[in-house]
Computed example of a mutant assay.
Amino acid sequence: MRNQQSTQGILSIIALVCLAAGWFNLFSPDVNTLLSRKVFYVLIGASFFLQAPAMKNQNFTYAMYAAAAICVLGGLFIPLGTKLESIKTVGLLGGIILSIASRPSYRQ
């Protein structure tokens, strides 16, 4: 479980580096686009797949797998510049919301 969390964290950090590289135009326009609009979503989706089994609610687990699949499949197969491209963002936002909603509350 701990190793899985570490892998998930590393994937998330690499995904954020890809996003930042695209935003700050660190490479050629084609590479920046590939990193920030394709690789980012594939890595975040992979991170969501690793996080899904740790969800506290079974319904959240299935929803996280769905968000992960949307991110990965969208990143791999949805052509850039189409109206369908926004589906990847829906998967990303869904995964983020599920992550926040499944965190334990530490009320005293």
Rank of each mutant, 00 (worst) to 15 (best):
I70R: 04
R107I: 13
L50H: 05
T82A: 03
N3S: 09
D30A: 12
V42H: 04
T7Y: 13
F40T: 03
P79H: 07
L76H: 05
W23R: 07
K38N: 06
K38H: 06
Q108H: 14
V39E: 02
L43C: 03
L98W: 05
I78D: 02
Y65W: 15
K38F: 01
Q5I: 08
F49Q: 02
Q51D: 04
A69E: 03
F49A: 08
L19F: 15
L93Q: 02
R107W: 13
F24T: 15
L35F: 10
G45H: 01
F27G: 04
G22P: 03
Q8I: 10
I96F: 15
A63Q: 11
S86Q: 07
L11F: 13
S99A: 10
G95K: 08
G94Y: 00
Q4W: 14
I14Y: 14
G22Q: 02
S99C: 10
G22M: 02
L16A: 13
Q8C: 12
L11K: 04
G22K: 02
G45A: 00
L34V: 06
F24Q: 13
I44A: 03
S102F: 04
Y106V: 10
S105L: 09
I10R: 10
S36M: 13
F60G: 09
L35M: 06
N25A: 12
L34I: 08
G81H: 08
Y41M: 00
V31M: 11
S105I: 12
D30M: 06
G74R: 07
